[in-house]
Design a protein around this nucleic acid. Structure first.
Length: 500
RNA sequence: GCGGAAGUAGCUCAGCUGGUAGAGCGAUAGCCUUCCAAGCUAUAGGUCGCGGGUUCGAAUCUCGUCUUCCGCUCCA
């Protein structure tokens, strides 16, 4: 059954407040009224996110003999971003029309005008216009650029007026200064993607790891982008974390690998528990400057199908540019064909925060049941009860097992703590003795703990406990000695790997 | 940046036509309790987003401002 848009919106709002209420995600700097599009992960959020990252790392690096890891710095030499195209390709000047309130990219307006000129047969005029535009863009001469808009009589499509604001620059990258003395400081950027750290280390890793093509380098790390609109909670943030793998292949074989990684990666998402009908591929029609094929894996969030992973055939664009700019050969000698070449690259890049959000959305469950309540005077009435729980895959759950003494006396707490001692070195365990046991079960449901172990009076004589399943709320009585393997089996990453 | 909505306790909200803040849930401490948030007692927690104005007196009226959410522009 599908929900209406407003119901979806409601569910999403509930997930956001659930995430805050139960320590998964907090708005950044909240005591100072917050910082837009930045979020912090709370005590359970950090566990869940770490589990997602670990699972990805094991899947990519440990399960593939020809993929190794890397942890490159966030700061990189400024020329890196020249080579990657981020400096020239992503500093777009924008302008608003004061009447229609519409915002445009200045280059788009001028390009449209050039197209008009070509249609009118004035090819030379169009060429001159574009040339002038590119020169002004390169010089960042926005004043003259605005004059150009005016002399070309460019109007807004909606208001049909030329009542423009000043031109403003949109900067994708965050900059900062390296150098303790202000005058000697150099402007550098916080990386807008992790990929470049891999590319500039391509030869280091290839040589020290004696890697043979095809091989991959994987990295998990933060990246920073000045998004124009930051919306949808942690879906689009200024500071975010990517899990990337760059796979270096022989030129000409890139499409084979592209298709292979497409299939491999969507399988991973399915194994995480995302249902097939909530996942789909979305091919890019307009390709980025570096790619010859690109596809997104999209998950159906409450606000629609949105990208969680991108798979790109990046050709030799990056390595070629780094070779040109650094003057250092970025080549590989392939003994099989006795040739030197710049490898082609197939990239898989999945957002850690987006996967986190998809996992939250996918696991948030509201279960409504009717319960008959007997009042003191003997009358009965039916009441609707809602049970909220996070149906997280046990291997991702922040807390694996909660241990409760049924009551807080008669040696039950001591016994429960003994069991905790038995498990805490291998699993993230929580102990609780406060409130009724029912309340404790509920609290664990809300953070997605798959198992609750309760010590009762019989435990003291039969060395057995009840273990309660989060999804069914059913209880089984099991010997204490069997707990370790029972939990270990359920929370192991193997449960994911065996589906790949 | 523009347009719309909203800001009172950790959460959900009440506070009518102005008289220096309340409830429920939650939290904490204790009591009670043999299994699914529902017993008892006590405690903590808010300069009502912020600033100015009107007034003897502002959470309440007014102006401004900030922040968040929704829509538009952009998105590797």
């Amino acid at each position: 059954m599908s929900l209406t848009p407003s119901e979806d919106r409601n569910v999403f709002l509930k997930i956001i407040s659930h995430a805050k209420e139960y320590g998964f995600v907090f708005p950044s700097s909240e005591i100072y009224d917050g910082l837009a599009a930045v979020y912090d992960y709370g005590e359970y959020g950090v566990e869940l996110k770490n589990n997602i990252k670990q699972l990805w790392w094991k899947t990519m690096v440990h399960l593939n003999e020809n993929i190794v890891g890397l942890d490159a710095a966030i700061f990189m030499h400024p020329l890196t971003w020249k080579a990657s195209g981020h400096i020239d390709g992503f500093s777009d000047p924008m302008i608003d029309n004061k009447d229609s309130k519409k915002r445009y990219r200045v280059d788009h307006l001028l390009e449209a005008k050039a197209d008009e000129l070509i249609e009118a047969g004035k090819n030379t005029d169009a060429e001159i216009l574009l040339q002038t535009m590119n020169q002004l863009l390169a010089k960042e001469d926005f004043v003259t650029l605005k004059t150009l808009l005016e002399t070309e009589k460019i109007v807004c499509q909606v208001s049909k007026t030329a009542n423009w604001t000043e031109i403003r620059q949109f900067n994708l990258m965050f900059s900062t200064e390296v150098g303790a003395v202000a005058e000697e400081a150099n402007k550098i950027y916080l990386r807008p993607e992790t990929a470049q750290g891999i590319f500039v280390n391509f030869l280091n890793v290839q040589k020290s790891g004696r890697m043979k093509i095809p091989f991959g380098i994987a990295q998990i790390g933060k990246a920073f982008r000045n998004e124009i609109v930051a919306r949808q909670f942690i879906f689009r943030m200024r500071e975010f974390e990517q899990m990337e793998m760059q796979f270096f292949v022989r030129p000409g074989t890139e499409m084979e690998w592209y298709n292979k990684w497409k299939e491999t990666r969507i399988k991973w998402h399915k194994a995480l528990g995302f249902p097939s009908n909530k996942l789909k591929f979305h091919d890019h029609e307009k390709l980025a400057h570096y790619a010859n094929a690109a596809v997104d894996i999209e998950y159906e969030f409450p606000f629609g199908f949105k990208e969680i992973e991108g798979i790109h055939s990046r050709t030799d664009f990056d390595l070629k540019n780094h070779q040109a700019l650094s003057g250092k050969k970025q080549q590989y000698f392939d003994p099989e064909i006795n040739q030197n070449y710049i490898p082609y690259v197939v990239e898989t890049s999945v957002g850690a925060d987006r996967t986190f959000l998809a996992v939250m959305c996918n696991s948030y469950q509201e279960e409504t049941t009717q319960q008959v309540i007997k009042a003191e005077d003997g009358t009965e009435k039916s009441e609707t009860k809602t049970r909220i729980f996070l149906k997280l895959h046990p291997c991702l759950a922040p807390i694996k097992v909660a241990i409760f003494p049924l009551v807080k006396k008669d040696g039950l707490p001591e016994k429960a703590k003994e069991i905790m001692e038995l498990l805490k070195y291998d699993f993230n365990v929580i102990y609780e003795e406060r409130d009724s046991v029912g309340k404790r079960y509920t609290r664990q449901d809300l953070i997605g703990t798959p198992f609750c172990v309760t010590v009762d009076y019989e435990t003291l004589t039969d060395q057995a406990v009840t273990i309660r399943d989060r999804d069914t709320t059913e209880q089984k009585r099991v010997p204490i000695s069997s707990l370790y393997s029972l939990i270990s089996d359920a929370v192991s990453f193997k449960r994911i790997f065996e589906q790949l």
